[in-house]
């Protein structure tokens, strides 16, 4: 590849003066390399390499870019870097610990709840958020919670089954829970 300067030189002068914005990302304090107005989705993916969070529509309609912001599921394409300043972010990359999958990830795997799997990250993040708030969701509540996530391949019944399996698994696990680090409420 050609030997040219990295992308950082496009940053505005004022931004560099103000210093980078920090956030707690998947349990670690990290500095954004992007301008404050940059979409949080782009900053996570291109700036920090957390490409598990996907672009699907850029209008908050498909849920592929869902992350947890201070424990709440948000569409990262609708947020900017400045919205995340000083906050805690969990992305799909933050759920696996020491080779141990989060029960929701495990349930998606067990149920084969994907086809092309491009929506899977967003589905898993939305499902984790649901189960943190409501450990025993009814089918209707799962459907309600995932209504904003699009799966174009039509894997919906397996996704619902995976969330139900995860709920049962998390119920059985220890009282301190299996939630990801840094996803705090």
């Amino acid at each position: 590849m050609a030997n040219t300067p990295s992308g950082r030189d496009a940053r505005g002068f004022e931004d560099q003066m103000a210093g980078p914005i920090h956030a707690q990302i998947n349990g670690k304090s990290r500095a954004f390399a992007s301008e404050p107005e940059t979409s949080l989705l782009f900053a996570l993916r291109e700036g920090l390499g957390l490409t598990g969070t996907k672009y699907g529509c850029g209008e908050g309609q498909c849920g592929a870019c869902t992350i947890l912001l201070n424990g709440v599921p948000r569409r990262s394409c609708q947020l900017s870097v400045s919205d995340a300043a000083g906050k805690s972010i969990v992305t799909i990359e933050g759920f696996e610990h020491n080779g141990q999958l989060h029960p929701v990830q495990q349930a998606f795997l067990d149920q084969g709840a994907f086809q092309c799997a491009y929506c899977t990250s967003g589905m898993i993040v939305s499902s984790v958020a649901l189960l943190q708030k409501n450990p025993n969701p009814s089918t209707t509540e799962i459907v309600q919670a995932l209504q904003g996530n699009i799966c174009r391949c039509g894997t919906h019944p397996r996704i619902v089954a995976a969330v139900e399996q995860a709920a049962r698994a998390m119920h059985r696990s220890t009282p301190q829970g299996t939630g990801p680090k840094g996803s705090g409420q």
């Binding site: 590849m1 030997n3 990295s6 598990g52 672009y55 990359e93």
Partner: peptide, 15 residues
Amino acid sequence: VTGQHQYTPDLRPAN
């Protein structure tokens, strides 16, 4: 399920 698979939009070579 871990977000590790790289689809085309996820590729980020240097420069």
